[in-house]
């Protein structure tokens, strides 16, 4: 069988691979037209690719993925795939995990056909340092626990989005096994309890985190917006514990929609004597308790702040903003920037 590519000069993907044979990192997004034959060409001709980042290569078949992993898997250092729904199932992920023996960075986001079996397979990747997962299928909590217990000690970055069946055991497992994390993202879950979040951070042997994203850790009950008496998600105690643990180093913090954090907790965290010298980006959207006083305290305690996101914080009405800080999302609030009066809409 001979593969003839008509008009090679017009096929852009082949052209990339042909003209840059020494590529080590290939990062292409929105690549829906990419088909199997381009991957086969890559296997044959590009022998140094180590970092493969592809968004939506949806016409590639499972058979082809398996071949790719069998052939180039052992030399892959990082693999990031987004938006796959036509192919890439659990069996393919299994082949990936068996062959990518040196992989350090793995990101699988919005990949539709994978689930628990893939999670179990990922727990065998002993070299992983950066793991980022966002599945579309519902998964059981146990395989995630297995990942944390088997490879958690190596991880420097852990991002688990929308795993809404995970419970306090996950937090406990992170507390026990992860000691090198710098980035932690756990989002959109209503099963974690506040006390479990607090115990994750209290007496944790992990150094202070630099990047924390806990958005959407809250109770979801339309008839009871205040939440149950025993707080769910990231609430007051968890927030205080988080900032006590990581405040000295934290650079980016997203606690959007964690609406059970009380005024008192904000006042404790952003008290007169507290400073968060490295915090550059803070998102407290939809935390209805934040008023002018708290927002002003936040600005005072975070001298390095550049971006302050406050969508849905309707109690912020009048704010004096230091020069260099961008405040995003105020509604009808009066923002004063170092003597210059600005009306926001």
């Amino acid at each position: 069988m001979i593969l003839i590519i008509p008009g090679l000069e017009t096929d852009d993907y082949h052209r990339i691979l042909a003209m840059m044979p020494d590529l080590t990192k290939l990062n292409l997004r929105f690549v829906t037209p990419m088909k199997d034959h381009i991957f086969y060409y890559m296997i044959e001709n590009n022998e140094s690719i180590r970092d493969l980042h592809l968004d939506s290569p949806n016409l590639v078949t499972d058979e082809c993925w398996r071949q790719v992993f069998t052939k180039i898997g052992p030399r892959l250092q990082s693999l990031k795939l987004w938006n796959l729904n036509a192919a890439f199932d659990d069996d393919t992920a299994q082949v990936m995990c068996e062959n990518c023996t040196g992989i350090e960075r793995l990101k699988l986001k919005y990949v539709e056909k994978i689930g628990d079996a893939t999670l179990t397979a990922i727990s065998s990747l002993k070299t992983l340092k950066y793991l980022s997962l966002c599945f579309l299928r519902d998964t059981e909590p146990e395989p995630l626990l297995q990942i944390i217990s088997s490879i958690g000690s190596n991880l420097q970055s852990l991002s688990l989005e929308d795993f809404n069946n995970s419970d306090d055991r996950l937090l406990q497992s992170i507390h026990e096994h992860c000691h090198q994390l710098t980035k932690l993202r756990l989002t959109n879950n209503d099963l974690f309890t506040d006390s479990a979040v607090a115990s994750l951070f209290r007496n944790w042997s992990n150094p202070a985190l630099t990047y924390v994203d806990f958005h959407g850790l809250r109770d979801v009950d339309m008839s009871n917006p205040a939440g149950p008496p025993e707080p769910v998600g990231l609430a007051s105690d968890g927030f205080i514990a988080l900032m006590e643990h990581s405040g000295s180093n934290i650079e980016s913090l997203n606690i959007a929609s964690c609406r059970h954090i009380s005024c008192g907790a904000y006042e404790t965290v952003f008290a007169e004597n507290k400073q968060y010298p490295h915090l550059k980006e803070l998102d407290i959207s939809f935390n209805g308790n934040v008023n002018d006083y708290i927002a002003q305290r936040i600005l005072a305690c975070c001298p390095a702040l550049t971006k302050f996101v406050v969508f849905g914080c309707f109690k912020i009405q009048d704010l004096k903003v230091p020069r260099g800080v961008v405040v995003v999302g105020t509604v009808r609030a009066k923002l004063t920037v170092e003597g210059i009066l600005q009306e926001t809409v």
Binding site: D11, R15, L23, K25, N27, L28, P33, H37
Partner: peptide, 21 residues
């Protein structure tokens, strides 16, 4: 496309063309 460069980042390939073999 540079022969000497070791990385390529294209964040939107939607306008690139492809042909079936």
């Amino acid at each position: 496309l540079r022969r000497t460069h070791k990385e390529l980042n294209i964040y939107d390939c939607a306008r690139m063309s492809t042909l079936s073999p």
